[in-house]
Design a protein around this nucleic acid. Structure first.
Lengths: 336, 336
DNA sequence: CTGAAAGCGCTAACAG
DNA sequence: CTGTTAGCGCTTTCAG
C-alpha cells in the first residue's frame, strides 16, 4: 500500500513559487524575504508538511542516524546506556538504530556492515565477547567511518572510548568484602577477550594485594558466553564450590543473576555464608535473594558521553586525530 | 567527515556498461544475459559494492524499515517482544527502529510522527498508559499508514492486533492463589486507560466468581503510571495494607517488582504471609524475595506475529479490510 | 531576492 | 539483451 505525502513541489505549485524558493524558506536561508518565508511557512504548517528525510539524506549524503551495537537490550546496563544515547541523539535530531549481537561476532560483523551500508552516519558499539579480530572495524574507520566504543572496547584501534573505571570497581568490591570479614574471595567473570574482563580482574588482584591476601588462580572462573549460557555459569559455580570460598566478586549483570540462580539451585552451596558483590545495573537487585552488593556503572552518563563524542566526530569538518578515552567512576551500593 | 562508497556508476564505468544494465544485473532481472550478470556480480563482489539503500528508498518510496513504539526497552516483556519482532524483520530484510514513550502520550505522538515522517513503512505499537485520544492514529491509518498494535491495544481502531489472553491469565492467577488456601485477594494494576488493565481485571473478577469469592472494589488499586513511579506503588501498597489481604494478583512487570520493593520496605507488611502472583516476563523472578508466582506472556511469539502481520500489510497490494486479532495464551509458573 | 537547472544513487519505462 | 532517459524529493550553484 503506497502512501502519498506533500512535497515541496505541492507547496511551490500552490503558492506560485519555485521549489528552490520554497526550499530556502523552509530551511530558513538568509537569501529570502521575510514575506515569502512567512507565506511558505504558514502554508506548510497548514498542510502539515514534513520534509522527506530520505530525499534529504540522499542529497546531503548524511542520514542523521546513528547505529548502536550491544549484546542485548534485555540487559539492565545496556538498556540504560541506550537511554543515555537517545537523550542526546534526539536533542541533536539524530535517529537511533539499535542492533544486538547476542555475543556472536558473526552477528556483530553483519550488524556493523548492515548499519554501515544502511547509511548510518556513525556507530556506537560495545564489543561482543566472541570477537577477537577487529581488522574490519579498523578498515571501516580508516575509510572515515566514525565509531565510538563504550564499555567493551577493542585494543589497537584509534578511536574515542567511554568506559567505567573497572579497576576501581573491582578494587572497591574486594575492599568491601574484606571489610565484611571475608578472606577467601572468588571471582566470576566473562570472556577472556573483553577489556572489561581484564580490567575488573586487575581491580580484583589489586584489591587482594591491598589487603594482603594471596591470589589463587583457581578461584577465578571465566564464562566465555558472559552469562548468556546458564550452563556455563553452573559449571563455574560447581567448580568453585570445591574451594570453600567465603565471598565472590562477579563481573557483570547477567553473570550476577546467573550466579544467584545457579547458587540457589545447588545443594553444595550455602548461600547464607557467601558474600556477593557484583557488577549490576539492575534496578531491582535489592529484592534479589541471596542479597548482594552492587557495583554500578554510570550507564546513562556513559551513553550520553559516547553519543556526544560520536556526533561531534560526525559533524567535524576535519578528520579527528586526537582521540579521547573517558573514564567514569563506578559506585558501590551496599547490601540493604 | 564525508565518506565515499562505490556506486552503480563506478561499476558501469569500469565495465563499460550502462548503469541500467548494472542495476538489472544486480537485481537479478530476467532481461539480462547470464554473461553480463556474472561479469557485474563478480566485479561488485570484488569491490565489495553495497547498494545505497537511501537512493533505493527514494526511488521505490519504501524504506524497508518498521518502527516499534513501546514504553521502555528496560522492561522484560517489551525487550522480549522486540527480539521477536527483530527475528522476523531481519529475515525479511527490514530494519527496525525502536522508540520509547515512558508512558507519556506526548512522547508517543512525537515518536509516531517522527517515525512516520521518517518514512518507516509501518509501525508496531503498544499504547502508552497516558493515551486517551487516538484520533491522530486513526487519521494516519486512514491515509494508508499500516499500524499493528500489540499488548496494549486501542479500542475503536480497525487494525491487526496481537494480545495475550489476559482474562485467562487473571483467572488462572486467582485459581492458583485460591488453591493455595488464600481467600482475600487484592489486585494491583496499571492505568485505567489500558486494554490490559481492563482485561486482567475481568480475569481477576471471573476468578473470584469461579471460586465463590466476593469482589471488594477497595482491594483493587490502580497505578496510572504503571510502575514507572515507585511512589504511586507505595501509596497503593500502603492503602492495601489496611485491608488484611492474604494474596495479591499484580498486573505487570514493573508493578510486580515495584510491589516487592515497596513491600520489603514497609513495616506494615508481613511478606511471608502474602502470596503473590504477578504478570512478569522476568527471567530472574525465581531469585526474587519474597518469592512469587509468575504469569508469563509469550512475548517473543507476540512480537513475531505482530511483525508478520505488519509486513504482510505493508507488502499487500490492496488495502486490508479484514483485520485479525490474535490472542496468545499465557502461562503460569508456580513458586519454585 | 527568486528561478532554472543540475544532481545525489538508483530504477524502470521506452527504444532499439 | 542493452542503452537512453526521466524522475523519486530535495538542495544548491549559477544566473538574473
Amino acid at each position: 500500500m503506497a502512501f502519498e505525502n506533500y512535497t515541496i513541489k505541492d507547496i511551490a505549485k500552490a503558492l506560485n513559487l519555485s521549489t528552490s524558493t520554497v526550499s530556502r524558506a523552509l530551511r530558513d536561508s538568509y537569501e529570502i524575504s521575510a514575506e515569502t518565508k512567512k507565506l511558505v511557512m504558514d502554508y506548510a504548517q497548514k498542510i502539515n508538511y514534513r520534509a522527506n528525510p530520505i530525499a534529504r539524506s540522499l542529497k546531503e549524503r548524511k542520514s542523521n542516524s546513528i547505529g548502536i551495537i550491544v549484546t542485548e537490550i534485555a540487559n539492565n546496563f545496556f538498556s540504560q546506556v541506550i537511554d543515555g544515547i537517545e537523550s542526546v541523539a534526539y536533542s541533536r535530531d539524530y535517529q537511533v538504530v539499535i542492533s544486538q549481537t547476542h555475543e556472536s561476532s558473526e552477528r556483530e560483523k553483519l550488524n556493523v556492515e548492515h548499519l554501515f551500508s544502511r547509511s548510518t552516519d556513525g556507530l556506537l558499539m560495545a564489543m561482543s565477547s566472541e570477537t577477537a579480530d577487529v581488522t574490519y572495524l579498523r578498515n571501516l574507520m580508516e575509510r572515515g567511518f566514525p565509531i565510538v566504543f563504550f564499555d567493551r572496547v577493542p585494543s589497537g584501534i584509534a578511536s574515542h572510548q567511554v568506559i567505567a573505571d573497572n579497576r576501581q570497581g573491582g578494587l572497591e568490591a574486594v575492599n568491601y568484602l574484606v571489610a565484611q570479614g571475608n578472606k577467601k574471595i572468588a571471582h566470576l567473570t566473562g570472556a577472556h577477550n573483553l577489556s572489561i574482563t581484564t580490567e575488573r580482574l586487575e581491580g580484583f588482584k589489586n584489591g587482594l594485594t591491598a589487603n594482603n591476601l594471596p591470589y589463587f588462580p583457581e578461584l577465578v572462573k571465566y564464562c566465555e558466553y558472559g552469562g548468556l549460557l546458564q550452563e556455563e555459569i553452573e559449571n563455574a559455580v560447581n567448580e568453585l564450590a570445591q574451594h570453600n570460598y567465603d565471598a565472590i566478586f562477579i563481573s557483570g549483570d547477567k553473570l550476577t543473576t546467573g550466579y544467584l540462580q545457579a547458587a540457589m539451585g545447588s545443594s553444595d552451596i550455602d548461600t547464607d555464608k557467601i558474600a556477593i558483590a557484583g557488577f549490576t545495573n539492575s534496578k531491582v537487585f535489592n529484592i534479589f535473594s541471596p542479597s548482594i552488593t552492587a557495583i554500578r556503572q554510570p550507564a546513562f552518563e556513559m551513553g550520553k558521553r559516547a553519543a556526544e563524542l560520536l556526533i561531534e566526530q560526525i559533524e567535524s569538518k576535519y578528520p579527528i586525530d586526537e582521540f579521547q578515552t573517558v573514564v567514569l567512576p563506578t559506585t558501590l551500593i551496599g547490601r540493604p
